[in-house]
Each structure stands twice: as C-alpha cells, then as structure tokens.
C-alpha cells in the first residue's frame, strides 16, 4: 500500500468515525437493543471482504476455504441480524 492511499483511507476512517459518534444522540432506551442489533448487522459488511477472499483462486486452497467459511459466517450475521432487528421493531410498533 502506498502512503498516499493510506492517508486517504485514514481520512475516510476519521470522518466516518466522527459521523458514527454524532449519529447516536438522544436515543430512547427502548431503542437501545434494536439499534445494537441493527448496527451489528451492518458490521456483517465483512461479507464483502469474504466474497473477495473466495474469489482469489479458482481451486481449493486453505485461503479459499477460509474465505468460504468467512462468507457463511458473515452471511449468517447479515441475514440473521437484519431479520431479528426487523422482528424486534415490528413488535415494538404493535405495542404502541
């Protein structure tokens, strides 16, 4: 990685982190768990990395198996995470 591209990636990191801090203000306590669950599903974005890891070589190697394992795990995180969050929020609305 070149220093220039590293600096750009750091810019992205700093700004996105700041945005993350600012986005969460005055959240009502009832929304804590759904918010946690929903952002947990977003952290399953590692699925993108897993797909790229699966793609590296066309034959079976240890790195490819690791990529496939990562893909299954990340997909569980993404699909399960979003579905559970949606279920929580749906129940939340009925109560109101």
């Amino acid at each position: 990685m070149t220093t220039e591209s590293l600096i750009i990636l750091f810019y992205i990191l700093v700004l996105a982190s700041y945005l993350g801090f600012e986005l969460i203000t005055k959240v009502p306590p009832t929304l804590h768990t759904p918010l946690m669950s929903g952002s947990n599903a977003i952290s399953g974005i590692t699925m993108v990395g897993a797909i790229l890891a699966c793609n590296e070589l066309g034959y079976s190697t240890f790195s490819k198996w690791l990529g496939m394992l990562a893909l299954v795990l990340a997909t569980i995180n993404v699909v399960g995470g979003y579905t559970v969050t949606d279920r929580m929020l749906k129940m939340f609305k009925k109560k109101k």
């Binding site: 996105a16 993350g20 801090f21 203000t25 918010l35 974005i45 993108v48």
Partner: peptide, 15 residues
Amino acid sequence: LIVSGALVGASGIIL
C-alpha cells in the same frame, strides 16, 4: 468496509 466498520465501531462505543 472502512466506512461501515468505522460507523459501527464509533456509534457502538457511544451506544
């Protein structure tokens, strides 16, 4: 990955 990871990392700390 960096943007979403940083978003979740930072908002998670605040939460």
